[in-house]
Amino acid sequence: MAENDESDAAARNYIEMHLLLTWWVSDDRRVPIIGRFSYCADDPFAAEIEFIPHDCQGTRWRVARDLLDVDFGVSGPGDVQAWAGNGTGGERTVFLSVVSDGWSALFEAPRAPLRAWLSATYDLVPAGTEGDRIDWDRHLEQLLG
């Protein structure tokens, strides 16, 4: 495979979006922050979110892709939770709560672009077919070998 063909194939297996989020530092202080959402078909169950503040290094979180697919209620029983809500202007949003080693953070994302990005990931790897993309023999060999 030629180098361009390899990069084209990699591009078809990867989706990334940068989105302006709101970081709820406290009840009365909110800070804009960039969120980089990425998805790779080679790791079909996971999505990665990098929270990128303007003045320091970002923090990456790997989450189950379906955790971000919220319409009602709370998704995710662990360190990362997501739920649908409404912003101060009435727009539909998604809240993301992350907790680790005694600290926590709350982020708010506009729902429409996040839903569009999720839809593109499901176009790439439809829900329910994620396991078909995994080389289970290779993973088992790595575990046992």
Rank of each mutant, 00 (worst) to 15 (best):
G78P: 03
G78M: 02
G78A: 04
V80Y: 01
Q81P: 00
Q81V: 01
Q81C: 03
A82D: 02
A82N: 03
A82I: 01
A82L: 05
W83E: 03
W83P: 02
W83F: 11
G85D: 15
G85K: 14
G87I: 10
G87A: 09
G87W: 12
T88N: 07
G90S: 14
E91A: 14
E91S: 15
E91T: 14
E91G: 13
R92A: 15
R92D: 14
T93V: 15
T93S: 13
T93F: 09
T93I: 13
T93D: 09
V94Y: 06
V94D: 04
V94F: 06
F95M: 13
F95D: 02
S97M: 03
V99L: 00
S100G: 00
S100F: 02
G102Q: 03
G102V: 01
G102Y: 00
W103R: 05
W103Q: 00
W103A: 00
S104R: 06
A105W: 00
A105G: 01
F107Q: 12
F107E: 11
E108V: 11
E108I: 08
A109Y: 12
A109I: 12
A109G: 13
A109V: 10
P110C: 07
P110M: 10
R111Y: 13
P113M: 07
P113Y: 12
P113Q: 09
P113F: 08
P113L: 08
L114I: 15
L114K: 13
L114M: 15
R115W: 04
R115P: 02
R115V: 12
A116I: 04
A116D: 05
L118F: 05
L118R: 05
L118A: 04
L118V: 06
L118E: 02
S119E: 06
A120E: 05
T121C: 04
Y122H: 15
D123E: 12
D123F: 14
L124G: 01
L124V: 09
L124T: 14
V125I: 12
V125F: 08
V125M: 08
V125G: 06
V125P: 04
P126A: 11
P126Q: 12
A127Y: 11
A127C: 05
G128Y: 07
G128K: 09
T129A: 07
T129S: 14
T129D: 04
T129R: 09
T129Y: 03
E130Y: 08
E130R: 06
D132Q: 09
D132G: 03
